[in-house]
């Protein structure tokens, strides 16, 4: 199977006053299509920065990211936005719904952006909302939904463009255990059903265990990289 995401010698530095802070330090790995991978590590280890770089939300200081055989480095911000729109889905810890849009409208945004026919988009969005159990809340605004419901809307939005790869940043971090479990279940179910590659950033080891592969980050470096079948460790 080919790699849907290839990361080569990725480094991200930030200026902090006169000092340079290396948050991601020369990391390389590849992710096979259709698999799930958890990026774990303690707070401040650089896992969210790594996710941002992999999803093309940020530019590396050096190294490269190849997503769906597209090298992200040379692309402009708008070209990367177009790549995200076609191939990528997102689920965030803080849900990140547009507060002025209803649940249905939030879900429709990625496809509407492509200029697809509203009727079809609406049909698919309603269907997805039904799948996440919010068929009766389509016209509610984010402020009228609970945290778990908001995250379910976010999941529906993440899957509407049938992404090849889904990036999830602490998807259950803001939820109680029971709601969190339900959201986890949804993500993994849809992932399997839609044959999506899942990259999950979390410090919840239980959640990470559900993935095919776990990459542990520490101080900006890959501390360990474990795949479930053949337990290979890279230091």
């Amino acid at each position: 199977m080919s790699n849907i995401l290839q990361v080569n010698n990725l480094t991200r530095e930030f200026k902090s006053g006169s000092k340079i802070l290396t948050v991601v330090n020369d990391i390389s790995f590849g992710i096979e299509e259709g698999t799930s991978c958890a990026i774990v590590g303690p707070s401040g280890s650089g896992k969210t920065t790594l996710l941002g770089l992999c999803a093309g939300l940020d530019r590396p200081s050096s190294g490269e990211v190849i997503l769906q055989n597209i090298k992200l480095n040379p692309l402009s911000e708008d070209e990367r936005a177009s790549v995200r729109n076609k191939h990528v889905g997102f689920v965030f810890q803080t849900f990140q719904l547009v507060p002025t849009l209803t649940a249905l409208e939030n879900v429709m945004v990625p496809l509407e952006l492509r200029g697809e026919a509203t009727k079809d988009v609406r049909k698919r969005a309603v269907q997805l909302l039904e799948e996440v159990g919010l068929g009766d809340r389509t016209h509610h605004y984010p402020t009228q939904l609970s945290g778990g419901e908001q995250q379910r809307v976010a999941i529906a939005r993440a899957f509407i463009n049938e992404p090849k790869i889904l990036f999830a940043d602490e998807p259950t971090g803001n939820l109680d255990t029971e709601t969190g479990d339900h959201v986890e279940e949804l993500i993994f179910d849809l992932n399997q059903k839609e044959h999506t590659t899942l990259i999950l950033v979390t410090h919840d080891l239980e959640l990470a265990e559900k993935c095919d592969r776990i990459i542990k980050i520490k101080n900006g470096l890959v501390d360990s990289d474990i795949t479930k079948e053949k337990a290979s460790v890279t230091k």
């Binding site: 911000e77 936005a81 729109n85 990140q96 945004v109």
Partner: peptide, 16 residues
């Protein structure tokens, strides 16, 4: 800002 960031995330161009 947050809304714009989300829209950019899901593929809206800066011009849009």
């Amino acid at each position: 800002i947050a809304t714009v960031a989300v829209l950019r995330c899901v593929g809206a161009s800066s011009r849009q």
